[in-house]
C-alpha cells in the first residue's frame, strides 16, 4: 500500500531507535494483555447488561462510563482490543507473507509464472484497496474472516514488487551467482540472501499497514459489514454509540481514542524498526 512506501522512508538522523520501538511495543503489548484480563482489571463483565445503570458518565467506578445497555465502556474498549489488534496484525502480516512468496517466485521464475504474478499485481492495483475489501466482504458475507481475505487480496502487491525487485538485483550479484554455482538451491539462496535484504523494508511496510488495516476494519464494522454484535469491536462500538453522541458522547468517543492510540503506538514501532533495521 502506498501509504507506507512514503511514510516509512523518513530519514531522520541515525541514532538509537530503541526507546520509540520499546514504548510502542510496550503500549501494544499492554493493550493486548489488558484485553485478555479486561474483566479482572475493571471488575466488570463486558457483555453484562444492566438496565439500571444505563448511560453513566465517566466516574471512578466506570472510567469510560456505561453504554445504552449499562455495559462498562472501558471493559468493552479493552475487550475490543482483543478483536481489533489480532485482526489488524493479521491483516498486515498475511498479505506480507503472500506478497513475499509471490514476489520471490516472480523474481526467480522468469517466463510465464513471473509474468502472470506481475500481471495479477497490475490487476489488483486497479482496485482501490478499500473498495476491493467492500466487494469481497459483499461476496463472502460480513465477518473477520472476510475482512482478512479482503485485506490479503488487496495488500500483497506492494510486498511482491519489493521482493521481486530485490531478487532481480541480487541475482546479478557475484556472491549470489557464486552461491548458486556452489550448488545452493533456490530456497537456500532465497532464505540466506534475498530475504535478509528485503525484510527490513517489508517489516516497515507491514508495521504501517497495521494502521491501515485497523482503520479499514473499524470502518467496515462501523458500516455493519465487519464485526457484528455480540462481537465487540471499536468501529462497531462507535456506530452503536453514535445516536447518543450529543448527550452521552463517551460511548462512541472512547473507542475512537483507542484507535488513535494504536495508530500512535504502531507509528512508534514502525519508526523504531526502520532505524534499527537500516543501521
Amino acid at each position: 500500500m502506498a501509504l507506507v512506501q512514503v511514510l516509512g522512508r523518513r530519514r531522520v538522523r541515525r541514532g538509537s531507535g530503541g526507546p520509540a520501538l520499546v514504548i510502542g511495543a510496550v503500549l501494544l503489548a499492554l493493550l493486548l494483555a489488558a484485553s485478555f484480563a479486561a474483566g479482572t482489571l475493571t471488575g466488570h463483565d463486558p457483555a453484562l447488561t444492566d438496565l439500571t445503570a444505563r448511560f453513566r458518565p465517566p466516574t471512578a467506578q466506570h472510567w469510560f462510563g456505561t453504554d445504552q445497555l449499562g455495559r462498562d465502556v472501558l471493559t468493552r474498549v479493552l475487550v475490543a482490543a482483543g478483536t481489533d489488534l489480532p485482526l489488524a496484525l493479521l491483516g498486515a502480516a498475511v498479505p506480507a507473507v503472500i506478497g513475499i512468496v509471490l514476489g520471490a517466485l516472480a523474481g526467480y521464475a522468469r517466463g510465464w509464472i513471473g509474468t502472470a504474478v506481475m500481471r495479477l499485481a497490475d490487476l489488483i492495483q486497479a482496485f482501490p484497496s478499500y473498495i476491493l475489501l467492500i466487494v469481497l466482504v459483499f461476496l463472502l458475507g460480513p465477518g473477520g474472516g472476510s475482512f482478512l481475505v479482503g485485506a490479503a487480496v488487496g495488500a500483497w502487491v506492494t510486498y511482491a514488487r519489493l521482493v521481486r525487485g530485490v531478487v532481480l538485483r541480487l541475482r546479478e550479484l557475484d556472491y549470489v551467482r557464486a552461491a548458486q554455482a556452489a550448488g545452493l538451491g533456490h530456497t537456500r539462496v532465497l532464505l540466506r540472501h534475498v530475504l535478509p535484504n528485503a525484510l527490513p523494508q517489508a517489516v516497515v511496510y507491514a508495521a504501517s499497514d497495521i494502521v491501515l488495516a485497523l482503520s479499514y476494519l473499524a470502518a467496515l464494522s462501523y458500516l455493519g459489514l465487519g464485526i457484528q454484535a455480540p462481537g465487540i469491536e471499536w468501529g462497531q462500538m462507535i456506530a452503536e454509540g453514535q445516536p447518543f453522541l450529543r448527550n452521552q458522547w463517551w460511548v462512541s468517543v472512547m473507542p475512537g481514542l483507542a484507535i488513535i492510540l494504536v495508530g500512535v503506538a504502531v507509528r512508534l514501532i514502525a519508526g523504531g524498526l526502520e532505524r534499527r533495521l537500516q543501521r
Binding site: V211, A219, G235, R246, S252, G256, I260, V262, G263, R267
Partner: peptide, 22 residues
C-alpha cells in the same frame, strides 16, 4: 509536523467525520 502526520494517518476517517459534524 511528523507527529501531526502520524495522527492524521491514525485517526479513522469516519470517526473524524462524526466529530467534525458534531
Amino acid at each position: 509536523i511528523n507527529v501531526v502526520a502520524a495522527f492524521g494517518v491514525g485517526v479513522p476517517t469516519f470517526w473524524l467525520g462524526i466529530v467534525l459534524l458534531a
